[in-house]
């Protein structure tokens, strides 16, 4: 028998340490930035194109909601579902906070024909941004490419 290892023979165990996969960024910072403004977390993770597209989609959804005279929810006593709605709307980060501070009508116009649509758009924008936070976190920890 020759001493040369055949292709079928088992390889000797490698003693070299396996390098840990390099993280593209701090996951908590990525999630926090993603909350602040849509797409900012992805920009931090060096994905500027994706960040720009997400920023356009989520901001457009939010601004359409405002334009349709939807409501930026706040918790109301006796209305437990408004707590969930508030959580969703606050997902939009600085967009939500800036509009609450600057807008003359953050509660929307309930008599407007498009009020319900506006609420749906605003809630959706906030929920989208919450998903972007989780996405940025997953990318930062290497769970998603």
């Amino acid at each position: 028998m020759s001493d040369t290892a055949s292709p079928l023979s088992p390889r000797p165990p490698s003693t070299a340490p396996v390098p840990a996969p390099r993280r593209p960024g701090n996951p908590f910072l990525a999630a926090a930035l993603a909350w602040l403004f849509p797409g900012l977390g992805h920009a931090y993770l060096k994905r500027p194109k994706t960040a720009l597209i997400y920023a356009v989609i989520v901001s457009a959804t939010f601004l359409l909601g405002l334009s349709f005279e939807g409501r930026l929810y706040s918790p109301e006593p006796g209305q437990p579902l408004t707590i969930l709605a508030t959580f969703a709307v606050y997902g939009a980060g600085l967009l939500n906070i800036a509009v609450r501070l600057l807008s003359a009508n953050p509660n929307g116009t309930i008599l407007s024909v498009t009020y319900e649509y506006g609420c749906a758009f605003l809630l959706t924008a906030g929920l989208m941004n919450l998903l972007l936070m989780l996405d940025a976190y997953d990318i930062a920890v290497g769970r998603k490419r």
């Binding site: 994706t50 989609i57 989520v58 959804t61």
Partner: peptide, 12 residues
């Protein structure tokens, strides 16, 4: 609304 939702989830 459907356009924005579809675009977002297709990317995500």
């Amino acid at each position: 609304y459907a356009l924005l939702i579809s675009l977002f989830f297709a990317l995500l």
